[in-house]
Design a binder for these strands. Sequence first.
DNA 1: ATCGTTGCAAATGTTTTGCAAGCAT
DNA 2: ATGCTTGCAAAACATTTGCAACGAT
Lengths: 141, 141
Amino acid sequence: MRDPHDLKNAGLKATLPRLKVLSLFETSKQRHMSAEDVYKILLNTGEDVGLATVYRVLTQFEQAGLLVRHHFESGKAVFELNEGHHHDHIVCLQCGRVEEFCDDEIEKRQKLVADERGFKIHEHSLYIYADCTKKPCPHKS
Amino acid sequence: MRDPHDLKNAGLKATLPRLKVLSLFETSKQRHMSAEDVYKILLNTGEDVGLATVYRVLTQFEQAGLLVRHHFESGKAVFELNEGHHHDHIVCLQCGRVEEFCDDEIEKRQKLVADERGFKIHEHSLYIYADCTKKPCPHKS
DNA sequence: ATCGTTGCAAATGTTTTGCAAGCAT
DNA sequence: ATGCTTGCAAAACATTTGCAACGAT
């Protein structure tokens, strides 16, 4: 299922639900998933986990630095694996499609803007919300 | 209270609750307010409006283009008056403080990034979430 | 054996909706 | 008079929490 090592490093016991959730994020083609997404996928896979546990595990993983939480203006939080490398997100407001990007110039100006105003930016600080018109946009996934 | 004109233009009847809410946005020192904020301020001012009405009116104003809705990674939506002039937002994740900014270089690159990926950006597309460390940060308003 | 973890159900917080009464036109 | 609007209460979501049973060390 998954190496219990990473969990132990994070100070978390290597329990079934935690291994399943972490495993899912590492094997899923979908990089960004909500608690409900994770819960449903695990159910469909025949795994038996409670929704409350999924929420708890996701929060613990976020605090342990294994996952990053985003809100993406949708009313529900989504999580992605924290793989260290910096990137920002552009999100379609119609269908929820997420694409990652990295632009040095934007990085530079972003830090400038933040510094001027006394803000300290994070790894994932910057979001662009837009509409994906050219690509197939299923209007709500 | 407020000129009923703008409301009529938007195809909305000039009712008391709507005039009060619009008026509040135009007179409040706080540019960004949640439904709860608006509701409480109106109550404290002795005005009598239902919370459900506040939610409905805010949504109608958003659709009419009078207000802009943001989520700001906080679990609750906030609204601001749409005054036409473009700007982006940098938001403190600790206390919710919002500052507006406009950076031509970021604009340019943002459009580029969006174009490359087939996204169409809006007036308020770009957000930076950060921590305001240098300024007094009340840690939750 | 101990203490963290789980699942369920209940609680919480935000936003939406059904419906009868009320108001703008 | 008509039809949009309101307020309230209830419903709908997303998320969190209390608690007794369970599982990893």
